[in-house]
Design a protein around this nucleic acid. Structure first.
Lengths: 243, 243
DNA sequence: CAGTTTACTAGGGTTTTCCCTAATTTTCTA
DNA sequence: TAGAAAATTAGGGAAAACCCTAGTAAACTG
């Protein structure tokens, strides 16, 4: 009884042989799959879509494996995918898998995160649209229609987030995230380190001894709370202390 | 004869005293200033706008000083500003000055550059919109209307550029800018270096000798064409090989 | 104005990084 | 399957980075 997997009534095996092989997309409703592990949300989205005459929710999935299963058995036009499903990494991996394996199925990422780097990562994984979960009904429908027409959908809020994204400004976990106060000499030395100069070269350039420069290096390590130059550079870049 | 500076006939000093102090913007046309040192372009934009019943070009400027002069004497709603005017830095500075000094005047940046970092810089300097010079008439008019309504205007091409912007991916001058091919071991070591581990710690963690790790470090320096760990980290971060 | 703090300058000694060469294993190819 | 190319493993020695302490000059404070 494999056809039980069909959730779209228009695609029961019986009907399958009656519809033309080449179907005009405009005669069919846009089939949407909602993938979210929060039931309330699935219900909410479904009720937003329910009034539409051109879009219908043909499947709801609460976990990753059922999404794959659905796609393998019933055609889906657009997936509304919660990226935190259950974790961000899972959602991203699923998004990538879907867009690779089912290129005809468009993915709209749907999250609460207004984070530019996440938006970019999602797009890299093949998502055609990105919506925040506080979106409106009109926008949701518009987004579904747009991606179904093979066009990307990103509203002005998303554009704004991307615009004001200071790359690499947020720390992953450790550290205070606050720029330490650097003395003029320390800033100078930090800049020169980031340009690849050795202590010897800096000493020559600044007309002081090697030991003086070495002290400034140590001060930098202490102020940034890092054990070595590698992490100093990384941290300073993340904090935008150096270009 | 200071009023000679008025280029908008509705604002000759004579008329000035007859219009109400609080003018309903919708009764007036949107006054546009075109700032571009390429005459052909000014002409072109002007002809695109000329047909409109709600937008009019009230000034054209071919250099920075005349833009300031115009703004000091005649009200302008929207400025179409070529950022390379004559150099990118000049255009950015002018944009910042305008938006600080004349907050009521909205700036639309108009350039040939489809460069995400430039877009971000322009927005930081206060521009309310960004158009590529190959824009259409409809879009140009739409952008002017949008920013005049205090809303930012960025079309989907711009959004796309921002989306696919790999932050810090272009080198200022040196280097090829291409990610070198790393062996699995090298990637592993690079990651550990970026986490602040010393060669000794990596050797312990990967169950090999210190010297083995040291060789991988050297290979990394060679492949990235850098002299030391500091520049390795910086370069690898710019190329998004780490983090 | 004396005392404290802050920034800059160093030296000694240890650890780490880096460059050279080279052996062994793995992968690719004719 | 034999030979070549690439990856991984090391060692010796020089250079650089790092940690400790400490002196000097300028700024700040009561």
């Amino acid at each position: 009884m494999w056809f039980r997997c069909y959730t779209d009534s228009r695609f029961t095996p019986q009907r399958r042989h009656r519809v033309p092989i080449r179907v005009n997309a405009y005669e069919l409703m846009i089939r949407v799959l909602i993938a979210d592990d929060h039931n309330v949300f699935v219900e909410g989205i479904e009720s937003l879509i329910s009034g539409s005459s051109e879009i219908e929710v043909t499947a709801r999935c609460f976990d990753v494996s059922s999404v794959i299963e659905q796609l393998n058995h019933a055609p889906i036009d657009v997936i509304l995918l919660d990226i935190s499903f259950p974790q961000v990494e899972d959602g991203l991996a699923l998004c990538e898998h879907i867009t690779r394996t089912f290129p005809a199925t468009k993915v709209i990422a749907l999250t609460m995160h207004d984070d530019a780097s996440l938006i970019k990562r999602v797009v890299k994984k093949g998502a055609k649209g990105y919506l925040l979960k506080n979106t409106t009904k009109a926008e949701l429908l518009q987004a579904i229609r747009t991606v179904h027409r093979e066009k990307p959908y990103f509203n002005e809020i998303i554009t704004n987030i991307l615009l004001h994204d200071e790359p690499r400004n947020r720390k992953s976990g450790s550290g205070t995230g606050l720029k330490p106060n650097l003395t003029p000499r320390e800033s100078e030395v930090l800049t020169l380190i980031s340009q690849g100069l050795t202590t010897q070269q800096m000493a020559t350039q600044l007309f002081v001894s090697v030991k003086a420069i070495e002290f400034h290096r140590s001060s930098l390590l202490m102020k940034f709370s890092v054990p070595n130059t590698a992490l100093l550079i990384k941290t300073a870049m993340e904090m935008q202390c150096i270009d």
